[in-house]
Amino acid sequence: MTSRVILISPAISAALRQARFDDGCSLDAAGLRQAQAAVGTVPAVGRAWSSPTVRCRETAGALGLDALDAPELAGLDAGRWRGATLAEVGERDPEGLARWLSDPGSAPHGGESVRALCDRVAGWLETAAQSAGASAAVVEPEVVRAAVVRALGAPESSFWRADVPPLAAVELSGRAGRWNVRLGRPLGTAE
C-alpha cells in the first residue's frame, strides 16, 4: 500500500516575516491573498489535517481544505521564547540560543527540543502511512523540516539546513516506513 502525504507550509504572516516564534497571529493580508490565489493547486486528497495554529488553519481554509486539527502536528513548543523574535532571544539568551541551534536534544527555552519534534512528527508519519491514497496537512515550517529529516533518515543536525518558504508543498510518498521526498513545489504553479 502506497501513501502520499502533501505537507503545505502556511502562507506568510507577521510572525513569519519577523522570524518570530509563533505567537498565535493570523495571516496578514498578503498571505491571505496568496493562499486564496492558490485555490485549486493542491491535488485532490482523501484526508486533510492542519496544525492547530491560527495561520495553518487559516491557510487550510483559504486553500479550500476541510482540514481537521491535528495536535500531533503542532509547531515546535518554544516555551518561554514564544512570541519573541530570533534577534530578541539572541540578545536575552545568546548561550541558550547557540546551544539550541547546535544540539538537537537541547531545549533551553523550557519547551520542546528539535529531537522531540522530529520524533513526534515521525510518529504521525507512521500513522499516516497506514492509509492508502493521498492526504494533505497544512503545518508549520519546522514540522515540514522534521518530516523531511525523518523521511530521509538524515541526522537531526540537518534540521536547520532545510529552508521552507511560505505556501510551499513537500510531498512524501511511500509504504512500510520508507518515504521518498519531493521537495518544495510552490503552490499556484503547474506540476
Rank of each mutant, 00 (worst) to 15 (best):
D119K: 06
P108T: 04
V39P: 05
V138N: 05
D69L: 09
P94Y: 08
A62N: 11
D66F: 07
D103T: 11
A60E: 03
V143N: 00
E112L: 09
L86G: 09
D66I: 11
G90Y: 09
G83W: 15
S51E: 02
G46M: 08
A132T: 10
S102W: 00
E95L: 04
T85P: 07
L117G: 05
A67N: 02
A137E: 03
Q130I: 02
E88A: 15
R47F: 04
D66L: 05
E88C: 10
L86P: 10
D93C: 10
W124D: 09
L101N: 02
G75Q: 04
L73N: 04
A122Y: 05
D69M: 13
R82I: 01
P43V: 01
G83A: 15
E126K: 10
R47W: 02
V45W: 02
P104Y: 08
D77R: 07
G40H: 03
G105K: 10
A60I: 05
R120V: 00
L73Y: 05
G133K: 01
G123D: 04
A129K: 01
L97V: 07
G64F: 12
A62M: 07
E72R: 01
G133A: 02
T127H: 07
A70H: 09
G83T: 14
L65Q: 07
E126A: 13
A74M: 06
E140N: 08
G79K: 01
V89Y: 11
A84R: 13
A84F: 09
A62E: 06
E58H: 06
L76V: 10
L101K: 00
D69P: 08
A84W: 09
V139F: 12
A107S: 06
S106V: 04
V39K: 12
A62Y: 12
A146Q: 08
L125G: 03
R57L: 15
P94A: 13
A136P: 10
L125W: 02
G40P: 06
E142F: 04
G96V: 08
R145F: 03
P94S: 11
T85Q: 09
G111Y: 11
T41D: 03
L117S: 09
W124R: 05
L86H: 11
G111K: 12
A107N: 03
G83N: 15
A128K: 03
T59W: 01
T59P: 08
L117N: 03
E88T: 14
